[in-house]
Design a protein around this nucleic acid. Structure first.
Length: 685
DNA sequence: CAAACCCCGGCTTT
DNA sequence: AAAGCCGGGGTTTGTA
């Protein structure tokens, strides 16, 4: 599924239909059965009996409903398309479907027969509930919806008024017809705020039916979209108590999801989720308000039992129905998981069951905040075998997974918790690192994070406290349960396999043909430059890195960031000011650190990494001295770099320090106190 | 490491 | 419904 799309499948938008439809294409378009309306209201059974046996009841009922609905799907499609084309196709749609309906299997198709059918059809229409009024309204609507010359506002308003006057009393009959419901949609679109409120009020008591109707749901979405706060509240409150049923309904589930994601406040969202706790909360909207599910669950073990069963029931039904990507479900899952996590020993069987339910659908969870949290916690709770299943189901989604704001956290959680580092490496890292996408990945705030984790762990520099806390929490959760290996060892194992590939893919940009993908371009992106610096600075036991790859990369950096005329605007140092920081980091390497207490730089030779630190400082100073270009380095960005070089050389007591200092003195008059970098240099002579 | 800065979502206003 | 304000978080920057 579309892992990257923020809001999953919206009813309001026209997306995702194609995907969902594919399994029912074989069905012939069939006319909207009159029975469908009844089936909607008939299923609206009384609250008291409903609650306790909701689960059993629904699964039976759902099947019969499914069948009815499936036949309508195709026509729904046509309707959708018609709508997309600004309602042009309306008549066609209708005729088509009516024809199918009326045509006798013995296929007589003379004109006469046709006329007769038409007459019959017209009569039938009139005989339907409020038929006459509907015809009349339809005629008015025909005038309203023309687009060629769009009617002037006054005309439109007048028509709207007339339609409203006529439809006021029959509105409940209107909204269930697939053609007439669109009249009301148009009416909503062109109406004032007050009238919209009135329409919402007029439909009071019908929202459940509307939500479950193949045609009504579009109207309902429009009402929500254009509706005022009060209107929305009215609809939320009316649907409250029926959400669990709606979630299991083919049409209804989408309406609920839209309502949840797009049209409800934080309070209303909580209220909606609370209904999934059970009957008490379904009947009384306010029950449990302001409390977390965990608090309520702890009130008594009966409550815990009940709430867990109910939450699980709703989640399971929806997952099996294929709605795993719904955000409202992610919110419900989050609550369920919070109960599971609270006492992982007593909840063991439920944990196993829940993981089993979701393991193969993980890709549907990972791109929302709450879904990703659920995914991470479940990964932490899973055993080796379960994790394998999860990895398998995420494997083919790695590219979306890693780029996504929330998905990348799931990947990191896998890195933190899975013992089988070979599997992780093969499933995710190889795929991603060895292709040419890699340079893209290190430029992105989110997709570079899993790699930064491998390099540096949960460094506060790259992981905000919030993110860091949740990740540590998952780690702890897993540690308690299954993990034996020390975190650092696990990470080192993974990194040992990965680091070579990281170097190689970055170095490959030196030979890039696309001028947009060169090493130079990469270094002019802050995120990437930072990453490359961290990569170079990460010590490793991998020989090839120490002997050839790291020196090559350092050289590449030197090439683009140090060489050349540093006074020119187009020099990387000036074009990208953060480069001076990267260079400074490389000059200090791992051996020089700023001591914040002592307020000075300290030298620790034990931390030396070949090529950086003092070595890099020497490289730069030799470059400057042998080319006699010190004059270029004594102001602006280059001055900061030079300053850092001097600091390090001085501290290491290198002879080059004296040489640099000497030539610097010759340039003393050019050191301006106004220039920040230059004034720092002045302090060093 | 802290201050300045910027961007975004939510809320209020017109 | 659009514009503008506000607060929070995250990023950048300035250079201890």
């Amino acid at each position: 599924m579309a892992v990257k799309s923020k809001g999953v499948k919206r009813v309001g938008e026209n997306i995702d239909k194609a995907g969902k439809k594919s399994k029912v294409v074989k069905k012939l378009p069939s006319p909207p059965s009159e029975s469908e309306e009844e089936s909607g209201s008939e299923s609206d059974i009384s609250m008291s009996s409903e609650e306790d046996e909701l689960d059993a009841l629904d699964s039976a009922e759902e099947q019969s409903e499914e069948e009815d609905k499936e036949e309508e799907e195709d026509e729904l499609d046509q309707l959708d398309e018609g709508e997309a084309e600004e309602d042009e196709e309306e008549e066609d749609d209708e005729n088509k479907s009516q024809e199918t309906k009326e045509v006798d299997p013995n296929k007589k198709s003379s004109k006469e027969q046709h006329a007769e059918q038409r007459k019959l059809l017209a009569e039938r229409k009139l005989q339907r509930k409020s038929g006459a009024e509907i015809q009349q309204i339809k005629n008015l609507w025909e005038k309203l919806r023309v687009t060629k010359p769009t009617p002037p506002k006054e005309v439109r308003d007048k028509l709207c008024n007339e339609i409203w006057e006529l439809s006021k009393d029959v509105i409940t009959d209107l909204v269930m017809k697939h053609d007439a419901s669109r009249i009301v949609q148009t009416l909503v679109k062109y109406s004032s705020k007050e009238r919209r409120d009135n329409i919402v009020k007029a439909l009071k008591g019908n929202y459940y039916v509307l939500a479950t109707s193949a045609y009504g749901k579009y109207l309902l979405i429009k009402l929500l979209h254009y509706g005022s706060k009060e209107s929305r509240a009215l609809i939320v409150d009316e649907l409250h108590g029926k959400l669990r049923k709606l979630m299991r309904h083919r049409e209804g589930a989408y309406v609920v999801e839209d309502l949840f994601v797009l049209y409800s406040t934080a309070d209303q969202k909580q209220q909606m989720i609370r209904e999934f706790w059970g009957s008490e909360y379904a009947v009384f909207r306010e029950s449990g308000k302001g409390k977390t599910v965990l608090e309520v669950v702890k009130e008594s073990s009966e409550k815990k039992q009940l709430i867990m069963t109910n939450l699980y029931g709703t989640i399971k039904a929806s997952v099996e129905k294929g709605s795993t990507g719904f955000q409202i479900l992610h919110a419900a899952m989050k609550e369920y998981v919070s109960i599971l996590v609270d006492d992982i020993d007593t909840n063991d069987s439920q944990i196993r069951e829940f993981i089993d339910l979701l393991a193969e659908q993980f890709a549907e969870l990972v791109h929302t905040q709450e879904g990703s949290e659920v995914a991470c916690k479940l990964i932490a709770l899973a055993n080796a075998k379960e994790r394998k299943t999860i990895i398998r189901s995420l494997k083919s989604h790695i590219n979306e997974l890693i780029k996504n704001e929330y998905g990348n956290l799931v990947l990191i959680t896998l890195f933190m918790t899975v013992d089988d580092t070979v599997l992780l490496f093969k499933s995710f890292i190889v795929e991603v690192v060895s292709n040419e996408l890699m340079p893209q990945l290190i430029q992105d705030k989110f997709s570079r994070r899993p790699f930064l984790y491998l390099l540096k762990g949960l460094d506060g520099k790259y992981f905000s406290p919030l993110v860091k806390n949740s990740l540590s929490q998952y780690e702890e959760l897993a540690y308690k349960k299954t993990s034996r290996k020390e975190q650092d060892i696990r990470r080192a194992e993974l990194l040992n396999r990965t680091i070579e590939l990281l170097y190689k893919s970055i170095l490959s940009t030196k030979k890039a043909e696309d001028p947009e993908k060169t090493f130079d371009k990469l270094m002019s992106v802050n995120m990437a430059a930072q990453f490359i610096t961290e990569l170079i600075l990460t010590p490793t036991e991998v020989e090839s890195v120490n002997t050839t790859l790291r020196p090559e990369l350092i050289d590449a950096v030197f090439e683009v960031a140090v060489k050349g005329d540093v006074r020119e605007d187009f020099h990387l140092l000036n074009k990208a000011p953060f480069i001076s920081r990267s260079l400074k980091a490389l000059i200090q390497g791992n051996e020089f650190k700023w001591d914040n207490e002592a307020k000075k730089l300290v030298h620790n030779e034990g931390e030396k990494t070949l090529g950086v630190g003092i070595d890099f400082a020497q490289t730069i100073s030799e470059h400057i001295l042998s080319n006699d270009i010190l004059g270029a380095w004594i102001q602006g960005q280059p001055a900061f770099v030079l300053n850092s070089v001097l600091e390090v050389l001085q501290l290491a007591d290198a002879s080059t320090f004296k040489d640099l200092q000497k030539s610097l003195k010759k340039n003393k008059k050019q050191l301006s106190k106004e220039d920040k970098g230059a004034s720092l240099l002045l302090n060093l002579i």
